Amino acid sequence: MMNDNEQNQQSKPPIIAVQDITFGYKRKQSVLEHVSFDVPKGQSLAILGYNGVGKTTLFNLIVGLLRPWSGQAIINKRYVPSMRDVFEMTEQANMINSMTVRDNIKFRKLLFDNRKARKADAKTIDLATLEDQKLVQAFGIGEHLDKKVSDLSSGLRKRAGLVAGMLLDPHVIMLDEPTNSVDPLTRQLLVDYINQLRADGRTILTITHDLHYCWEVADRIIILDHKRLIADHMIVDFPTFEEFEKAATLGREKTHVDFGIND
């Protein structure tokens, strides 16, 4: 039985609609086949599946970076969404390595902010108080704003990339493996921040192998396997993490592997 929050989410019109998508990179070699699902506004959805099943490909189809062979993906009633409204953070954190963090933020603001900002010169955009932004302070990147992205650790790069995207206040947040290569403090910051965004009614899609993170921040999971969407569950349907973990791993037991070390 759905609780009040689930019923409220399901009653809302979908902000994301993936409709019977089939896609492949090579002719006659599909990666995804007949994938369909809706995401209502305000839901936190985790996309699960083993390596190579097409999770990142699905993200790129949703935001319009790839064109499906058949079917369609719509965000906020658009086939190609406004990147002002959608923030997608890849594992590389969507940052230009040769630029400083501050210049990356300026550049993103010029590209994706409103028309007036796009026409303005980057120097005229008031980012002088960037160090005072609560998000900058919360993720501890103030002292790194004038460093080149290439000089940052992978964890700091992810923090900076998240801040750069979220300063534009997007409605849809898409995160690809956000907890990879981050320390426990950054991971907890992410959990706390995503849960605040959930409470604020943002729509969040996350690709992750971190099932504990998923358990903490997701309302719902879908699972891809063998090119298709094979499972769709609400997190509250699982009384315990152990039951959730079994469903998320498709009930596959860990197998013993002989690596030949003692041969």
Rank of each mutant, 00 (worst) to 15 (best):
K41P: 00
F259M: 14
Y193R: 04
F244A: 01
K158G: 05
A160C: 15
T100Y: 05
N8T: 15
N262S: 13
V163G: 04
G42C: 02
W69P: 01
I141H: 04
G251S: 04
D169I: 02
K77G: 14
G251H: 00
D219S: 01
T255D: 09
D232T: 11
E143P: 07
G165N: 06
H171G: 10
I16V: 13
I194G: 05
Q92A: 14
N60I: 04
K28S: 12
D232L: 09
P13H: 01
T22M: 00
T90W: 00
P81I: 03
G260N: 08
E177Q: 09
L110F: 08
N180H: 09
T57H: 05
L130M: 13
L175A: 06
L152W: 09
E33G: 00
P13G: 04
L152G: 07
A122M: 14
K106W: 10
W69A: 12
G42V: 01
S181H: 15
L190W: 03
D183L: 02
D103Y: 11
I47V: 11
T249C: 09
G251R: 02
L32S: 02
D126G: 11
L32Y: 00
K246T: 11
S44D: 00
N60R: 15
F59H: 07
K227N: 13
D146R: 03
M99S: 12
E253M: 09
A160R: 06
Y213A: 04
R157Q: 14
T57G: 02
S150Y: 08
H34D: 15
Q196D: 14
P14Y: 01
T186N: 01
E91S: 12
N5H: 14
A73W: 02
L185Y: 10
H226S: 12
I105Q: 01
T208L: 02
V35K: 00
M174V: 09
A17T: 13
F259N: 14
L111T: 05
L45A: 07
S154Y: 05
N3Q: 07
A248W: 06
L65Q: 13
T206N: 04
F241A: 06
T100R: 07
G64N: 03
N262L: 11
G142Y: 02
L185N: 10
K116F: 11
E177L: 06
I105A: 02
N60Q: 14
I47C: 03
D85I: 03
Y213F: 15
A93R: 04
L48V: 05
K147Q: 15
V217I: 15
M166H: 07
R27H: 14
H144M: 11
K12G: 10
Y50Q: 14
K106G: 10
S82F: 01
L66S: 10
I15P: 08
T249G: 04
L135R: 08
D176C: 02
P14H: 00
S98A: 11
S11E: 10
R78V: 06
K148N: 14
D192S: 10
L162I: 15
I222F: 01
D126M: 05
G64L: 11
S153R: 03
A128C: 03
A218H: 05
L190T: 09
L58I: 09
I125N: 08
